[in-house]
């Protein structure tokens, strides 16, 4: 062996692994943040429902709040909203 790897310093970038580009509620990009936040990233995360629709966490929480006592539904497919468990 002439050359061996001693150390490796790598750089990776992460993005949300969502199928859509934009949040179905606020229509803002997942790469960005919801309208109430200023800084994208960990502070404004994305969540998935059992129906596998992604939203900004802040957006869907607000949406669920508006639903009141009714059954909470996904705004995209009208199925009952359940956070996808990790």
């Amino acid at each position: 062996m002439r050359v061996q790897v001693e150390g490796w310093h790598a750089v990776g970038t992460w993005t949300w692994n969502a199928e859509d580009d934009a949040c179905g509620i606020c229509r803002l990009a997942f790469d960005g943040c919801c309208p109430d936040c200023r800084i994208p990233g960990d502070d404004c995360p994305i969540v998935w429902g059992e129906c596998s629709h992604p939203f900004h966490m802040h957006c869907i929480v607000k949406w669920i709040g508006v639903q009141g006592n009714n059954v909470q539904r996904c705004p995209m497919c009208r199925r009952e909203w359940q956070f996808k468990s990790s």
Partner: peptide, 24 residues
């Protein structure tokens, strides 16, 4: 990483990486 942070996608930036090698 992905097990720690779900719903994410990692892209490697090869142009920014560097290595230390042992050369004989």
């Amino acid at each position: 990483y992905l097990s720690k942070h779900q719903g994410r996608r990692l892209t490697w930036q090869n142009s920014l990486a560097h290595c230390s090698l042992k050369a004989t």
